[in-house]
């Protein structure tokens, strides 16, 4: 039922044994395996906890891409009332990798934008695995314009392997679309809160990740290029992705230390996919507390502070 990652194999074996024991006990009245099952279960839980407290950057990349991880629509379902999706860039078409709309978040009207990757073959194809064409970013700009005009906060959930590297993207100016979306984010006079929920890769992510507050889930990753891409360029071999993941410093913990992000949201033990509902609720709490603070500031202050935050970035690292 659940999808185990390669490095979770020992956990998978223990958990499989537990469920087999339980089934056996059900089928065989009078057979007492409760103690044994409980012992194994405790061992599995401990192993899970140990594994997840010391995930390597590459393991985190795999967790960030876990198919069972909550995606944009899971957060919308769990956190947003009256969600009203908005479509189209008004120039060419509608992109399904960047989605968004209006909704109520804990009482307050907001606009939402994010990447949706899909969760089965059909929806993954529909959402192009979260890889947006220019129309996705132009739709995001349009939705941010709407937020600006009506004074609504923007909640953005970047989660993408990168913009779609296809002919259509180049033909219709994906670079320009990303640049304009970044530009629009940085000029907003309404609060913008971003949560990198899975993988935030390259320009495709930054286009909707320039918020007053940028948060990452504990096991999400955020990078200038995918570890595979970096490895194939600098190591000339995609097999060195794990090395590239380590070298690039892509984890929430590293990025918090570099002051590139503002906050790290803890995940349930064993990752967001183990308890999506708890994850969604925790993200909701984090967004609410950020919006509470930002809501007290006037528009010019929000814009100025957002810009100054990015201008400051990296300067304190100089010796």
């Amino acid at each position: 039922m659940s999808t185990y990652l390669e490095f979770e194999k020992p956990i998978a074996e223990l958990e499989t044994k537990v469920s087999e024991l339980r089934k056996l006990a059900e089928a065989t009245p009078g057979m007492n395996v409760a103690d044994e099952a409980a012992r194994l279960e405790a061992r599995a839980a401990q192993l899970l906890k140990d594994t997840y407290t010391k995930l390597t950057p590459w393991q985190k990349t795999l967790v960030a891409r876990h198919p069972g991880r909550p995606h944009f629509y899971d957060y919308v379902r769990g956190l947003i009332e009256d969600f009203t999706p908005l479509a189209g860039d008004r120039g060419f078409g509608d992109d399904n990798a960047v989605v968004g709309g209006l909704g109520r978040f804990r009482g307050r009207p907001v606009v939402l934008i994010g990447h949706e990757k899909g969760n089965d073959t059909k929806s993954r194809l529909k959402h192009n695995f979260g890889m947006a064409t220019p129309e996705g970013y132009r739709k995001a700009i349009r939705i941010m314009d709407l937020a600006e005009r009506f004074g609504l906060p923007v909640i953005a959930l970047p989660d993408t392997p990168g913009a779609y590297p296809g002919l259509v993207s180049e033909e219709r100016g994906v670079a320009e679309a990303i640049a304009r979306s970044t530009d629009r984010s940085l000029s907003l006079t309404v609060p913008m809160v971003c949560v990198i929920t899975g993988e935030g890769m390259s320009g495709g992510a930054i286009a909707i990740a320039c918020g007053n507050s940028v948060m990452m889930l504990e096991h999400s990753v955020y990078a200038v290029i995918s570890p595979e891409g970096c490895a194939s360029i600098l190591w000339r071999s995609a097999d060195k992705a794990a090395d590239a993941a380590t070298a690039m410093k892509i984890t929430a913990q590293d990025l918090l230390a570099l002051k590139v992000i503002d906050r790290c949201i803890p995940e349930p033990t064993g990752g967001a996919h183990r308890d999506p509902l708890a994850m969604v609720a925790a993200v909701g709490d984090a967004i609410a507390s950020e919006l509470d603070v930002l809501g007290t500031k006037d528009g010019e202050t929000l814009k100025r502070e957002r810009r100054e935050k990015f201008l400051r970035m990296g300067r304190s690292l100089a010796a």
Partner: peptide, 22 residues
């Protein structure tokens, strides 16, 4: 494009330079 050896700090030059354009 990006200076990969600076990782995320390279990516952050995109918004930083955008602020300069603004």
């Amino acid at each position: 494009g990006a200076r990969m050896q600076e990782g995320i700090l390279s990516l952050m030059q995109m918004p930083r330079a955008t602020v300069a354009v603004q």
